[in-house]
């Protein structure tokens, strides 16, 4: 074990103990580790942004590009300057233009992602389980696959219904404002069960990962102590 390994191991050991000390309550060591994390993470992100984004997308075309490339690079340069200038009180309005550009791109990407990335494939998946070819592909227990498909459909519609908060507007209706139509209320009840099941599974996955991390940290502390004891 060389000196470098001992130093880095010691840093990792100390930081782990400092973070885990939160289990006995909020304390100075936990906060120290937290602030150190914020500083290093901010610095690391800045380096990544400068080296992987600013340098190839803006500075290389401006410094090493052809005349045409330099001319095109002036537009993002202008947007960047406006965005930075917008942070000063006197020029607050300047950041509207780069933010409008970002807003337009983000909105279009959100629409495309939602339609082509989620709505179409997920709807397709719900439809496909009703394909008779799938039902009869394997002989026996066809009714089980039909029930399975119905449960999947009911669960999906139920979950969507749970998030439906719209009301039909009736000027002279006796229905109380907080009442939802019966069908929606029933489906949202079914949806609650499926949302609970989904969140429970997510919780189990997250808990397993967190438990693995806890075991890993305890192991790393033990290994470091063993290495130091062994080396001495």
């Amino acid at each position: 074990m060389n000196l470098s390994e001992i130093v880095w191991g010691l840093i990792g050991f100390l930081l782990t103990v400092m973070v885990l000390s939160y289990l006995i309550g909020d304390n100075l060591f936990f906060r120290l580790a937290g602030y150190l994390f914020v500083g290093v993470m901010a610095g690391f992100l800045s380096v990544v942004i400068i080296r992987q984004i600013l340098w190839p997308y803006l500075l290389i075309p401006l410094v090493h590009g052809s005349w045409l490339e330099r001319l095109w690079a002036l537009i993002p340069l202008g947007l960047v300057i406006l965005l930075v200038l917008g942070q000063f009180k006197r020029f607050t309005g300047f950041s509207r233009y780069p933010l409008a550009f970002l807003g337009g791109v983000a909105a279009a990407l959100a629409i495309g992602g939602a339609v082509f990335g989620t709505i179409m494939p997920q709807t397709q998946a719900v439809i496909e389980i009703f394909d008779p070819v799938v039902w009869y592909a394997v002989p026996g227990r066809t009714w089980l696959r039909i029930i399975d498909a119905v449960v999947m459909l009911l669960g999906t519609i139920g979950t969507l219904s749970y998030f439906h908060f719209g009301r039909q507007w009736r000027a002279h209706s006796n229905i109380k404002a907080e009442e939802r139509p019966f069908i929606l209320e029933t489906l949202s009840g079914v949806g609650q069960v499926f949302i609970g099941i989904a969140l429970g599974a997510v919780f189990a996955g997250l808990f397993s990962s967190a438990l693995v991390a806890l075991i890993d940290r305890i192991l790393s502390i033990g290994q470091f102590i063993l290495l130091v004891v062994g080396a001495s």
Binding site: Q122, V126, M152, T156, F194, I195, I197, L199
Partner: peptide, 9 residues
């Protein structure tokens, strides 16, 4: 089963 809820969400 959890996929159903996740799909709805």
């Amino acid at each position: 089963l959890p996929i159903v809820g996740v799909r709805g969400i």
